[in-house]
């Protein structure tokens, strides 16, 4: 069943036509990759989905409902959580305070406590650093925190914007493993935006390729990994 339906959306920054009719479908329980090079419009797409960007044309439906009806901050309660590009942890707060803010929209104290424990289990690195000031953690740890914090909202759909950006290769692998584990252990649907096409397609079920504001290819992750043109353009394989 389709959880998120992005229908032919157009978005502009002033005169710049950033999205030229993007259509994406994400089914429940899936990990879907959205890959593309710098400036392709990946972040813009996520901003459009999370209501931070007004659409000139097209619509975004979540659970069959047009989300144009919701203010951006209401989407969290509705089930969409986003980890913004560049992580965006509250640098001056502790790890715990960050995680608690993730559950801001929830009122079930017991449920929050349970989720907190589960997330600290999923991210053992955070468990060791509960009282550390987030801004002093390494890039990889901050990414974990941002993901854990988003999970605290109990989202149905998690939007990740380039989680591997600027991380050492070994950490990149760890992050993608965690993404996969999140999806498998909690059943959370994930839309994963990445430039690292190789790694993201490996953990995804399906993928879309975005080029200057347009979807140029889509399909099964396995098939995309074999696709000659994609290999050339994004996987660095001649």
């Amino acid at each position: 069943m389709s959880l998120l339906k992005v229908n032919n959306i157009h978005a502009y920054y002033g005169n710049i036509h950033a999205l030229k009719g993007v259509t994406i479908d994400v089914n429940e329980g899936e990990i879907v990759s959205l890959i593309g090079s710098n400036g392709a419009g990946k972040t813009t797409t996520l901003r459009a989905i999370s209501g931070l960007m007004s659409l000139r044309e097209g619509s975004v439906e979540f659970e069959g409902e047009d989300i144009a009806n919701y203010a951006s901050h209401d989407l969290v309660g509705r089930g969409i959580a986003m980890v913004p590009e560049g992580r965006g942890v509250f640098a001056k707060m502790t790890v715990m305070e960050n995680l608690e803010l993730g559950a801001y929209t929830r009122n079930d104290a017991d449920g929050i406590k349970q989720d907190l424990e589960r997330i600290l289990e999923l991210f053992p690195r955070l468990a060791e650093r509960k009282t550390q000031i987030s801004g002093t953690m390494s890039g990889g740890e901050q990414q974990m925190l941002a993901m854990g914090r988003a999970m605290m909202a109990q989202p149905k759909l998690l939007l990740l914007d380039e989680p591997s950006m600027g991380l050492a290769p070994i950490l990149v692998e760890l992050i993608f493993d965690t993404v996969k584990e999140l999806n498998e252990s909690t059943g959370t649907t994930i839309l994963l935006v990445e430039q690292n096409a190789h790694m993201s397609l490996q953990v995804s079920h399906r993928g879309y390729v975005l080029q200057t504001g347009e979807i140029v290819t889509q399909g099964n992750a396995k098939d995309l990994q074999q696709d000659e043109s994609i290999k050339k353009a994004y996987l660095g394989i001649e």
Binding site: H73, G77, P84, G88, E97, L101, Y104, T105, A153
Partner: peptide, 18 residues
């Protein structure tokens, strides 16, 4: 806590549902 989050980063605070 809402204020504290906003003080630190308005965009992220909004992404938390504030």
């Amino acid at each position: 806590r809402q204020w504290m989050a906003m003080r630190e980063d308005e965009d992220v605070a909004q992404a938390m549902g504030i």
